[in-house]
């Protein structure tokens, strides 16, 4: 049993690295996902993950399959799209989802075009599905750094961020923090997507951000419960996904996200906060 679960990590350094990288991401991406979910911006992270592609592709064209180059490119492209979408939203009557959709489509098309200019199908698959089993030292440091920055930034921004989520108009009347907080938060989203893109690939980078957050909704109601539960779900998914991918020789990124998906479906059925199974019973109502 112990060997079944821990064997691959004891035996192979690359599995330990993969686990460490995924754990780092499991601490930083889910809290960001919780805020995205509560702001009804879940799909925004999906759009952003596509927006990252051309930056990563330019990095890829310049330096080949080099993680630092692709990371910097992805960060730049993601931040640019977030910033442009934010500026358009704040200066025109176009809503945030629409302006983001416009920019991410442009960005995605440019990315696919760039990747196809050079490189084979295999290269494209690397970009799309990640390279979690080939995390080198710089990549691990990057993931750890992203997790550290994210947690400290969320702690520092927590109060204005909650206010910006609950009552942006109120925050505007008492402070100018609303705009900077919003952009800082979008920056965190992009940073974590780029981190996830290292481990899981562009297509699945969103998975570890959102699935644990949405799963947590079936276990807790307020932020003090949602955030730790989302982290826990992400850690569990990473572990199970990595083990399964090793044992059954499956691609790593998809198995991690599928593990998170199974936890989500289980919570959807049995979660104590609104799980579907509980609808079958009608508990006696309370006195008051």
């Amino acid at each position: 049993m112990i060997d079944l679960l821990f064997g691959p990590f004891i035996e192979f350094g690359f599995m330990r690295r993969a686990l460490a990288g995924c754990f780092a991401l499991s601490l930083s991406a889910p809290p960001v996902g919780v805020f995205l979910m509560l702001r009804r911006m879940s799909l925004m992270s999906d759009a952003m993950s596509h927006a990252i592609l051309p930056g990563a592709a330019i990095g890829f064209l310049v330096a080949g399959l080099s993680l630092p180059a692709m990371t910097i490119g992805g960060l730049a492209a993601g931040l640019l799209v977030a910033l442009l979408a934010g500026i358009v939203t704040r200066t025109t009557s176009i809503k945030e989802d629409a302006s983001l959709a416009a920019f991410y489509l442009i960005s995605l098309a440019a990315g696919v075009l760039l990747v196809s200019l050079r490189g084979s199908q295999i290269d494209l698959l690397h970009i799309l599905f990640g390279t979690v089993l080939a995390l080198d030292d710089p990549a691990l440091m990057l993931l750890g750094g992203i997790a550290t920055v994210t947690l400290f930034a969320l702690a520092a921004l927590y109060r204005p961020l909650v206010m910006e989520c609950v009552d942006p108009l109120f925050l505007r009347t008492v402070s100018r923090a609303g705009g900077p907080v919003h952009y800082a938060f979008l920056g965190l989203v992009v940073m974590n997507l780029v981190g996830g893109f290292q481990a899981l690939g562009t297509l699945l980078a969103v998975g570890l951000m959102l699935l644990p957050a949405i799963t947590a909704r079936f276990w807790a109601t307020d932020l003090s419960g949602l955030i730790p539960i989302a982290m826990l779900v992400a850690i569990l998914s990473s572990f199970v996904g990595l083990t399964a991918s090793y044992r059954a020789d499956l691609p790593t990124g998809p198995s991690i996200v599928l593990a998170a998906g199974i936890l989500y479906l289980g919570s959807l059925l049995f979660g104590p906060r609104g799980g579907l199974v509980w609808r079958l019973f009608r508990p006696r109502h309370l006195e008051g």
Binding site: L38, V162, V166, D167, P168, L169, F170, D222, L223
Partner: peptide, 15 residues
């Protein structure tokens, strides 16, 4: 008509 998101899990005292 405020822009308050009342579905956000915030307690009354925090509001």
């Amino acid at each position: 008509a405020g822009e308050i998101d009342r579905s956000f899990p915030l307690s009354v005292i925090d509001l």
